[in-house]
């Protein structure tokens, strides 16, 4: 009699634990911001396999949750930075200098966004620049300042974040670029993001 009660209870416990752990770990994996098959260049992270038949199931599940439609291979590639070059998270109350060479692409844009990809409510201040509207430095490199207050030079405003010290992200979108292929991506360089100071 007791076995007849204990056995189903034990089985129920086993099944519940199995479901709990299985679904919990699956949820955890889809919550993680970084795709599994990502390629990292300093702070910049790209996922060239996203949206292709080669994408791994975890990246698919993650994309299904974030709701993005990744750029096609004939279009371009988006690189996302959530940290500065020394690994500290990007914040809307700090001043960052984005400096250096950009990969080969016919067109690229650089934009500052909320951590979840939402646009910042920066009023009339610009939050994105395109490569055609930029004055390059002597060596053809990029020199952009991301800050909540007006700065000399090319300034992207981060003042529209939810809180003054909200996490933000920088997105470099390269269009018509050979950077889609993994081998080219591992060779190319992206600008550094250095934190100058925080307000």
């Amino acid at each position: 009699m007791t076995l007849a009660i204990r056995l189903p209870l034990t089985l129920l416990g086993l099944v519940a634990a199995g479901f709990g752990i299985g679904m919990g770990s699956a949820w955890y994996m889809t919550q993680s911001i970084q795709p599994l098959d990502a390629i990292e260049l300093g702070s910049w992270v790209a996922s060239p396999n996203a949206g292709t038949p080669d994408a791994d199931p975890y990246s698919r599940a993650r994309l299904a949750r974030t709701g993005e439609l990744p750029l096609g291979s004939g279009e371009g590639l988006a690189l996302v930075a959530r940290t500065d070059s020394s690994g500290r998270g990007l914040q809307s109350d700090c001043i960052y200098r984005v400096l250096g060479q950009t990969p080969q692409a016919r067109l690229w844009t650089l934009s500052v966004e909320a951590a979840d990809g939402r646009a910042l409510a920066s009023g009339d201040n610009i939050t994105a620049v395109g490569s055609d509207g930029l004055f390059r430095q002597g060596d053809g490199g990029l020199n952009v300042i991301v800050a909540p207050t007006p700065q000399a030079g090319i300034w992207l405003a981060s003042n529209g974040a939810e809180r003054s010290d909200s996490p933000i992200r920088l997105v470099a979108r390269l269009y018509d670029t050979p950077a889609r292929t993994v081998t080219a991506l591992t060779n190319f360089v992206m600008p550094t993001i250095s934190r100058e100071r925080c307000l």
């Binding site: 086993l14 299985g22 599940a61 949750r65």
Partner: peptide, 17 residues
């Protein structure tokens, strides 16, 4: 438990999209 968790994990990940 682990086997079942593994199966549930994989099925969940595949079904999310």
């Amino acid at each position: 438990i682990l086997l079942l968790a593994g199966i549930i994990h994989i099925v969940t990940i595949l079904l999310v999209p």
